[in-house]
Design a protein around this nucleic acid. Structure first.
Length: 885
DNA sequence: CGATCCCGCCACATT
DNA sequence: AATGTGGCGGGATCG
């Protein structure tokens, strides 16, 4: 209250304090009057003064009392004067209105006045943004808390976030050192790099940054310390200050969350991150489902963090309107480029270094082979990844088991990510519109898991798709995978948007080593799509690769049409250029995808251009709403060629999609939904070991369209964590012809899923995904155009994939291979447990904190129940720290 | 009614 | 044991 009063006194600041303003303010003025504190102290009634106390008082007190007090306060106010001139709205009101008690009452308590954001501003106002190096500013939590008139607990909330950005560091109990923003850029850079590496692709896709981060952390620690404990927090350790070591214990989830949250922004193309997505990402746990409560808690925490970041002027609240409605989101308004940085990717940058070492081999760095997407961030990440590998290797050697665990985690994470991705995708669609360039892009990417050499993608020569189980693995893997795969991929990827990644070209399929995880993202590159179709050329590659069968046709179309539907034809023509463009756009994947794309607009607008999507997309954003119809129309128009096929696809849609097979419906769905829907098969599902996501949406032609449009969204992902699983190799054939066949949606999906599961069972059996679309037997009909190769028969998945791909947009060629990421997991026990069963074990490991490792119990503490639930974050942390394996 | 998010209990960590 | 930290989520307020 005092504060308020003061403010009131003050004068003036306009009432509202929006965060933005605040931020500005804060930086400027350092502290206000020092005096205040004293006064505070002096204050006659300590109790009352405390916010809480006051509130209570107010509440309890009858109105009369209240009034009196208020009056008093007023008196005080002037005296005290707040440090900050700004006053909260209410204050002003009070000023004006004062008179009425009631008003006062109301106002005072106003929640807004007590908001963490406001408090943070006040806090920040006390210290110079860029303190002289010479001066060391120490912050006493108690003092600040009393000065600001809040409980200490609140100060912790602020300080923890600031600490995550290295604006302050803890020097001792109750003592923090103020560093100011001198290192902010460095910190952000570090976070960005870390984010890219880790999330990198994923992120791009969807952001699953978090995982990566953790890993990173872990890695670092490992390097330095064996894991354990330390927490890494760090992260980043930034140079500066602080101690880095300091961290102690727990990871402070708030700090980590804060960092991760920031990373998401930095990695995001659009710089916009919706709360729900962030929350999902942050929730390790798996799955989506997971607790709803947990999700809520995460969101709450994110609000806390967001308020502080807002006060720092790094983000601002925005709303993304999606189909569903508008979602709360935050946009990064802080620095985007950091001096120097950028560099490359490879990681090697400082940041990278740290990362690499550690954990999972970093797990992650997933390398991507992906295709198109590659370009984006990935490049960097890519590179980075490799490096990481090196480091990883080291690590890997050691700890397999641990790794395994990690892998497991990864799996779970992947799953989560997948879920997140889906959502994101969806969101993206809706969301911004922003889809801008970036979004489009992402075709698929692969992330190989680091582990060791893991995955490789090799191109199989052909297509053989045989699903041969046993055989397959051999084949594909053989190559050397990583290096080869990766490298090639990259280039390839880059080249083609379409991409297919390297793999494709030669190889129709990608083989994954057993136990690997994959994420496939279908990029939707327009190009690809287009390419695919018509051009055979570009697309051709893929298709060719695949040998696919498939050329052309339908699949491509679909994809194309989505993206470019309008332009589709054109696309063909243009392919290269566009592709390039696409690529660019791609690059930036952002978490948030703009979904928008929708459709139609583009079509028209871009006549030839086709996909141009990015741009167009932006324009359209909105559209969700409108979209459907128009889109449909467009599509049709555009489609014509494909349309039939497409339609088929649409029909096929995945089960996920509700829609029955109708084209229209599907389309519609597609539109909005573009989202890539994925089919997620968790291990738990019973599938033996696979988890994967397929984009359902895509499948349908309609969808595909949409997908195409939305580049980003479209990407289908397939995750196969199998860490547990041990061995499933996957092969993807880029081309998918299959879709063509008019399989019922449900059927498809079902089939697909089934297939997978089957494969899973086989554990050993490799799965192939052929670029070329494989037609599923079921599908067989593929009447369509392509002759496709039947190769796939074996793999069911392929069909699915194919669809997705197709849907996705053919870019997919990419889909097939490129996009896919592999993560290797080594699993010690290859036992094929059910996924679920498996997980648990792993999880434990993961979760366990270093210290606790031994005891699972620890986790339990609070709630046995939760155990799982227990903050995933923590787990992550633990994991990272532990790394260890 | 959903979005925000304050408040403070309480567990865990540190002293 | 006292005190510092900070996870967490009930439930109030906002819009």
């Amino acid at each position: 209250e005092n504060i308020f009063d003061r403010s009131r006194m003050a004068p003036k600041t306009p009432i509202k304090n929006e965060p933005v303003d605040l931020s500005k303010q804060k930086s400027c003025t350092p502290e206000r009057n020092p005096i205040t504190p004293v006064k505070l102290i002096d204050r006659p009634q300590p109790d009352p003064w405390t916010p809480t106390a006051n509130l209570k008082m107010l509440v309890s007190a009858a109105s009369p009392d209240m009034r009196d007090r208020e009056k008093k306060k007023e008196l005080f106010r002037p005296i005290e004067n707040s440090e900050q001139s700004d006053t909260p709205d209410s204050l002003q009101y009070d000023m004006v209105d004062d008179c009425t008690v009631d008003e006062f009452e109301k106002q005072r308590p106003s929640r807004k006045q007590k908001s963490l954001g406001l408090l943070c501003q006040k806090f920040l106002a006390r210290y110079p943004s860029y303190p002289l190096s010479t001066e060391k500013t120490t912050i006493s939590l108690d003092e600040v808390a009393s000065i600001l008139g809040v409980e200490r607990r609140r100060i912790y909330d602020i300080v923890n976030v600031l600490e995550s950005l290295h604006l302050v560091s803890r020097v001792a109990k109750n003592q923090y050192c103020w560093h100011g923003r001198h290192n902010l850029s460095q910190t952000l850079k570090t976070l960005q790099e870390a984010g890219e590496l880790q999330y990198g692709e994923l992120m791009t896709f969807f952001q699953h940054k978090e995982q990566d981060l953790e890993y990173k952390f872990g890695e670092r620690k490992k390097e330095t310390i064996p894991d354990s404990q330390d927490r890494p927090l760090l992260d980043f350790s930034e140079p500066d200050c602080t101690s880095a070591s300091a961290n102690s214990r727990k990871d402070k989830s708030l700090r980590i969350m804060s960092q991760k949250f920031v990373m998401l922004f930095l990695v995001s193309k659009t710089k916009i991150v919706t709360l729900d997505i962030a929350a999902k990402i942050l929730i390790e746990e798996t799955q989506d489902t997971v607790d709803h409560s947990k999700f809520k808690t995460k969101v709450r925490r994110l609000y806390d963090i967001a308020n502080v970041l807002t006060s720092l002027g790094l983000i601002k609240k925005v709303h993304v309107t999606e189909e569903r409605g508008r979602k709360p989101a935050f946009k990064w308004i802080g620095p985007v480029e950091f001096p120097g940085k950028t560099d490359e990717p490879r990681g090697h940058s400082p940041t990278s270094d740290p990362l690499p070492g550690t954990q999972r081999g970093a797990c992650v760095p997933y390398q991507i082979c992906a295709t198109g997407k590659q370009r984006f961030t990935r490049h960097a990440s890519f590179n980075g990844a490799q490096p990481c590998e090196g480091t990883r290797r080291k690590v890997s050697s050691e700890p397999n088991s641990p790794r395994q665990e990690r892998q497991d985690e990864y799996c779970s994470k992947m799953i989560n990510l997948a879920a997140v991705c889906r959502q994101k995708i969806e969101e993206d669609k809706t969301i911004f519109n922003s889809a801008r360039k970036p979004s489009i892009t992402s075709p698929l990417s692969l992330l190989p898991v680091p582990g060791d050499s893991d995955f490789c993608v090799n191109p199989l020569p052909q297509a053989v798709f045989p699903v041969v189980q046993a055989d397959v693995p051999n084949l594909s893997l053989p190559n050397g995978v990583n290096s080869q795969a990766l490298h090639p991929c990259t280039p390839a990827a880059s080249k083609t948007e379409n991409g297919k990644p390297t793999l494709l070209p030669n190889q129709p399929f990608l083989c994954f080593p057993p136990s690997s995880l994959f994420m496939l993202c279908g990029g939707l590159q327009e190009n690809n799509l287009r390419e695919t179709l018509p051009t055979a050329g570009d697309m051709g590659n893929r298709s060719a690769e695949a040998q696919t069968t498939v050329p052309p046709a339908a699949c491509q179309k679909r994809s194309s049409h989505k993206c470019a539907s309008p332009s589709a034809p054109v696309d063909d023509e243009e392919p290269a250029a566009k592709k390039q463009t696409m690529e660019q756009s791609d690059v930036p994947l952002s978490l948030v995808v703009p979904k928008k794309p929708f459709e139609s607009p583009k079509a028209e607008s871009t006549p030839g251009s086709g996909c141009t999507s990015a741009e167009h997309l932006e324009d359209f954003h909105l559209d969700h709403a409108s979209p459907a119809v128009p889109e449909a129309v467009h599509e049709e128009s555009t489609k014509p060629l494909d349309s039939q096929e497409q339609e088929k696809w649409s029909q096929n849609k995945d089960p996920d999609e509700p829609s029955p097979g109708k084209e229209h419906i599907s389309k519609e769905n597609a539109n909005q939904p573009f989202l890539p829907q994925y089919l997620f098969v968790q291990p738990t599902a019973g599938l033996s070991s696979f988890n994967f996501l397929l984009s359902a949406n895509q499948a349908p032609g309609a969808i595909s369209l949409a997908a195409s449009q939305l580049p980003s969204l479209s990407v289908p992902c397939v995750v196969v964590p199998s860490a547990a699983l041990a061995s499933f190799p996957l092969v993807c054939s880029p081309t998918i012809t299959g879709p063509l066949s008019p399989v019922p949606d449900g059927s498809f999906s079902a089939a697909t899923s089934v297939n997978f599961s089957m494969s899973g069972l086989a554990s050993t059996t490799p799965v192939f995904i052929g670029t070329t679309a494989v037609v599923t037997p079921k599908v067989s009909p593929v009447p369509s155009v392509d002759p496709q190769q039947p190769a796939h028969p074996t793999l069911h998945l392929s069909p699915v994939l194919a669809r997705s791909c197709g849907a996705v947009k053919l870019d997919s060629p990419v889909c097939m291979g490129h996009p896919v990421t592999l993560l290797k997991l080594q699993q010690p026990s290859s036992t094929p447990l059910t996924p679920k069963s498996i997980r648990p074990a792993h999880h434990e490991a993961f979760f366990k904190t270093p210290g606790s490792l031994g005891d699972p119990v620890a986790w339990k503490k609070n709630e046995g129940n939760q155990t799982r639930n227990a903050s995933s974050v923590q787990r992550r942390l633990e994991i990272s720290s532990t790394s260890p394996d």
